[in-house]
Amino acid sequence: MNSQRKIDSIMAKTSSKEEKLQGICDFLESEVSYYDWVGFYFKNGNKNELKLAQFTGEETEHTIIPFGKGICGQVALSNENFVVQDVSQQDNYISCGWKVKSEIVIPIFVDGENIGQIDIDSHTANTFTKEDEQLLEYVCKKVAAIL
């Protein structure tokens, strides 16, 4: 898979962790037409909240997300992938803008602990596939190795 090779290439660069994460965000947003916002959230120290790290796309006011709130906050507790094909059907959804129609969030595990996640918003409803999940799980495994 070409995308996986590109992710490997970004991760192999001798740049900082932050540059690697930003490179992944930039690549995914430019490579996949329906990835309109790509970002990483990580557990904020020992607090039960997520903190926004690197991202590509429109600015967001959601730089801190309490565990349990929104899709990202739910993944922080469930430790499972969460694919939302239509955000309007979700009760516990934090709106990042009227354009967002669907969202996918994949957790990142280090030594069995959920330490963060990759979050992708799309302006297209019903767009995410199993292939998206597999690619993003691959990204999360690669990211876990540098944390």
Rank of each mutant, 00 (worst) to 15 (best):
V143S: 10
F82W: 06
G68S: 11
S16D: 12
I24T: 11
G112D: 07
E61D: 06
V105P: 00
N2C: 03
E80M: 11
E131C: 06
I115K: 00
G57S: 09
K130M: 05
L77I: 13
K20Y: 02
I65S: 07
Q89I: 07
V84A: 12
K13M: 15
A76R: 07
K13F: 07
S95A: 15
G97F: 09
C25N: 06
Q74R: 13
Y34M: 08
T129D: 03
Q89D: 09
V143E: 04
G97Q: 04
S78M: 06
S30G: 12
E58I: 10
V83F: 02
F128C: 07
D121I: 02
V32A: 03
H123F: 10
M1T: 12
N44R: 12
C72W: 00
T60Y: 00
D121T: 01
E61T: 14
V100A: 11
G39N: 10
C96K: 00
G23T: 09
I120A: 03
Q134Y: 08
V100D: 07
Y93N: 03
D8V: 08
E59I: 06
K43S: 04
E58C: 06
K99G: 09
W37K: 01
H123D: 12
Q4G: 04
W98Q: 09
I10W: 11
T14C: 13
C72N: 02
K101S: 08
E18M: 05
F42Y: 15
T63A: 03
G73W: 00
M1H: 14
I120S: 02
M1N: 15
W98E: 11
E29A: 14
I7Q: 12
A144P: 04
D121Y: 01
Q134D: 11
E137V: 11
H123Y: 12
E29M: 14
N2M: 09
L21T: 14
P107I: 10
K101W: 05
P66C: 02
R5F: 11
S33Q: 13
P107A: 08
Q90G: 01
Y34R: 12
K69V: 15
I146H: 06
Y93R: 06
S88T: 11
K51D: 10
K47A: 14
A12C: 14
E61N: 10
S3P: 03
Y35E: 12
Q85F: 00
N48L: 08
K99Y: 11
D26S: 07
Y35I: 12
S122A: 07
V105D: 02
V105E: 02
A144E: 14
I7K: 13
V139N: 04
V139E: 03
G97A: 10
I24A: 05
S15K: 13
D86Y: 06
S102V: 05
I120K: 00
G70Y: 05
C72S: 15
Q54D: 04
E103C: 04
L50P: 01
K17I: 13
Y138D: 02
E131R: 10
A76H: 13
Y35S: 08
G70F: 02
E49N: 04
I108Q: 03
V38Q: 08
K17Y: 14
L77N: 08
F55Q: 06
Q89V: 08
K6D: 10
K13H: 14
A53M: 11
T129L: 07
L147A: 14
T124W: 01
D91K: 15
T63S: 08
D8A: 09
T60C: 02
N44V: 04
Y35T: 13
T124N: 05
K51G: 10
K141W: 05
E61W: 02
